[in-house]
Structure formats: structure tokens, C-alpha cells
């Protein structure tokens, strides 16, 4: 189970992208998503694709790994493709240019192009999110978000800190719970109920049976964790220094500016073309 889920885990390669401030990377990510949403056609998308390939190469993580991050979402992407193909904006609009018709179903060149565009956008977005999580540890990520929302919150409020702690704990729990369900599945396989050998109905029943022990385990862990946080003097709103301070450097400004330019460029292209 964990073998397949590679989104959300840092891959250390020591590249310059890894060393960037998480705030710069999150901002860049948001700018990229905005550019992606605002892009109107293949020309803009091509620019974005070339740009992202350059950034992905800079992370020194093989491109193949990014493609693997797409795998778990392949069915969703197929669904988006089909949906866009038959019900998207381009599908019905130009019925006269129908390339292929079967009863009520009409396939148009515009529809095909629109569907491909939608899927490509989605793929680029996923790959780019993967870039963020592959190059940033979850704790740095949550620290980055904390740093970004802190200026927005009222003075003296602990909202940012609470949010950041909550997120860090949630991120910490996901792999732990996955691992726990995997060991239970293994223990069941050892007692003759091999998940991989089962029919779909039996699989569903077995997964249901996981619900109780995994939930109980999650509560147990949560309880132990809060006790241990308290025992080590953790208190929301307590004055605290950071283990790792975020420091914004010239490279971060450069990186963010690149994405600002990208967004501006996409917008201009959209308006001009």
C-alpha cells in the first residue's frame, strides 16, 4: 500500500530547490496553480510545461519519479478526460464540426482538445504538488504555512500556531496509520486471508474489519502523543523558539519572481492570443 503512495514524502537529493525557503516554494506553487487555471489554450500550457520541466530537472529527482506520483490518480484523470470529452464546454458547442457521432454521443475535435487540455492541466498540477512535497519535509511545509498565515492573524492570537501543530500532527499520522493498516493486513494474510488473493467482496469485508483496530490504534496514538507533548512542556501560545528558523534569501526572491513572471506571461498570452 505504501509502496504505491509516493506523493507526500521527501526525497533528499540536496538540490538547490530543496534548500529554498518553504514559503517561497508554497508561494511559487500557488502562482503556478493560478497560471495553470488562467491558461486558456495549448500555447500557454506548452510554456507552463516547459517551465515546469526545467524546475523539475533542477530538483535532481528523476522525471520518472514524478510520473509515478501520477499513477494513483490515473482513474480520476481518465474520468475527467471522459467527462470533458462528452459533457465539457467544447463538446456540444460546435456540433457541426462533429468528427464522429454515435447516437446521442458526439465527439468533436474541439471537445477532444478541451478534454486533453483539462487532463494535461491536472497532470501538471499534480506533478507540481509532488515537486513541493518531494523537496520539502512535512515539518518545513507546515512551518512555511505557519509563517505565511502568521502576518494575517490578529496580534496575540494563537490560530497560526494551532493550525500548524494540527497540520503537522495530521501529516505525521498519515504514514503511521497506513503502516498500521498494512501490518494488520499482513497479520491477516499470515492467518490465511491474503488481501491480494481475494475477490472484491471479500476484500471489502476485510477492509471494513480493519476499521476498528486502526481507529482504536489512532486514538491510542493520539492520546499518547498529547500526553507526551504535555509532559515535555508543550503549551499552545507559550513563547517558544524554533529549532529551524526560516530565512529568506536572494534565491528565494529569485524563485518567487520567476513564478510571478510566469503568471504575468500566461496572462499576457491569454489576453493577446
Amino acid at each position: 500500500m505504501r509502496d504505491k503512495l509516493i506523493l507526500g514524502r521527501m526525497i533528499p537529493t540536496g538540490s538547490r530547490v530543496h534548500e529554498l525557503d518553504p514559503r517561497a516554494k508554497i508561494t511559487a506553487m500557488l502562482l503556478f496553480a493560478a497560471a495553470l487555471i488562467l491558461s486558456g489554450g495549448w500555447a500557454e500550457l506548452a510554456v507552463l510545461a516547459v517551465f515546469s520541466v526545467i524546475v523539475l530537472t533542477a530538483t535532481k529527482i528523476p522525471l520518472r519519479t514524478y510520473l509515478r506520483a501520477l499513477r494513483p490518480l490515473r482513474w480520476l484523470m481518465l474520468f475527467v478526460f471522459l467527462f470533458q470529452l462528452f459533457a465539457g464546454a467544447g463538446a456540444g458547442a460546435a456540433a457541426d464540426s462533429a468528427a464522429w457521432t454515435l447516437g446521442p454521443v458526439t465527439l468533436t475535435a474541439a471537445g477532444l482538445s478541451g478534454a486533453l487540455l483539462a487532463v494535461s492541466r491536472m497532470a501538471l498540477l499534480i506533478v507540481f504538488t509532488a515537486m513541493l512535497t518531494f523537496t520539502t519535509t512535512p515539518s518545513m511545509l507546515s512551518r512555511g504555512i505557519e509563517g505565511m498565515i502568521k502576518p494575517l492573524s490578529r496580534k496575540g492570537s494563537t490560530g497560526a500556531e494551532r493550525f500548524s501543530l494540527m497540520m503537522r500532527l495530521a501529516l505525521r499520522f498519515i504514514p503511521a496509520l497506513l503502516e498500521e493498516s498494512q501490518t494488520i493486513l499482513k497479520a491477516q494474510a499470515a492467518r490465511g486471508a491474503d488481501y491480494e488473493e481475494m475477490k472484491i467482496k471479500e476484500k471489502a469485508r476485510l477492509l471494513m474489519s480493519l476499521l476498528v483496530p486502526v481507529t482504536v490504534g489512532a486514538f491510542r496514538r493520539a492520546e499518547e502523543l498529547t500526553t507526551s507533548l504535555e509532559a515535555r512542556g508543550y503549551r499552545i501560545g507559550a513563547p517558544r523558539t524554533s529549532y529551524r528558523r526560516l530565512s529568506w534569501s536572494g534565491a528565494d526572491t529569485f524563485f518567487t519572481l520567476l513564478f510571478v513572471l510566469l503568471l504575468a506571461g500566461t496572462l499576457t498570452m491569454r489576453l493577446m492570443l
Partner: peptide
């Protein structure tokens, strides 16, 4: 192993 008990 006690964490792998799951029936009621």
C-alpha cells in the same frame, strides 16, 4: 500481536 486482533 495484540494490535492485530480485530474481531469483536
Amino acid at each position: 500481536p495484540e494490535q492485530h486482533l480485530f474481531e469483536d
